[in-house]
């Protein structure tokens, strides 16, 4: 990589949680470090910085993404949602109600990913849930409670259940 290029700086605008924010970044700054260090949004966590653990998950244009693998300059025109923008998500309350939180370090990443999962697949079958959530690691819980939390929100293919069950807003 051209070192000069990586360190040259630019003023960019990021659309985070419905607000447009101006930040000065180096070309080499990841979205993760920009959110955390420039915007004070520390809910996305730094854990592997290699795309292996999901602790840094945010939504980029609605898609769950490892913010440690994106550069800030790559996402200037895209809507970004972090855990701080998902306080109303039923996934967040389900994680509390089902005891899916211990140290809490993986929690924001799981909630963001779980939210996207249920938005895209409100009726997700177990295989889909597994496929989505295998990108996140939790070292504390053993996954049972996380499974309970996510499953508690899955709308079965049954009209009567659909009516009373909490839905996720797109």
């Amino acid at each position: 990589m051209n070192w000069q290029n990586a360190t040259s700086k630019a003023i960019i605008h990021l659309h985070v949680n419905g607000e447009t924010q101006e930040v000065v970044v180096r070309n080499a700054d990841t979205l993760l470090s920009t959110l955390r260090e420039k915007l004070g949004l520390t809910g996305a966590k730094r854990s592997c910085e290699n795309g292996d653990c999901g602790a840094c998950t945010v939504l980029i244009n609605g898609e769950p993404s490892h913010s440690c693998l994106s550069l800030a300059v790559e996402v200037v025109n895209l809507p970004i949602t972090t855990i701080e923008g998902l306080l109303d998500s039923p996934v967040r309350t389900a994680f509390i109600d089902k005891w899916a939180i211990q140290c809490g370090f993986c929690t924001p990443g799981f909630i963001v990913n779980g939210h996207a999962l249920l938005t895209n697949h409100p009726n997700a079958k177990e295989e889909i849930v597994e496929e989505w959530l295998q990108s996140n690691i939790c070292r504390c819980t053993g996954y049972q409670e996380i499974k309970d939390a996510v499953n508690s929100l899955i709308v079965e293919n049954d009209d009567s259940i659909n009516k009373t069950h909490p839905r996720l807003s797109k």
Binding site: T42, G43, W99, I101, G104
Partner: peptide, 21 residues
């Protein structure tokens, strides 16, 4: 009894050591 740290942790607002700059 519900954990006293659960709500705060669910919002991503807990400040762990690395969250300080």
């Amino acid at each position: 009894e519900q954990r006293i740290d659960a709500v705060e942790k669910s919002t991503g607002k807990v400040r762990y050591i690395g969250d300080y700059s």
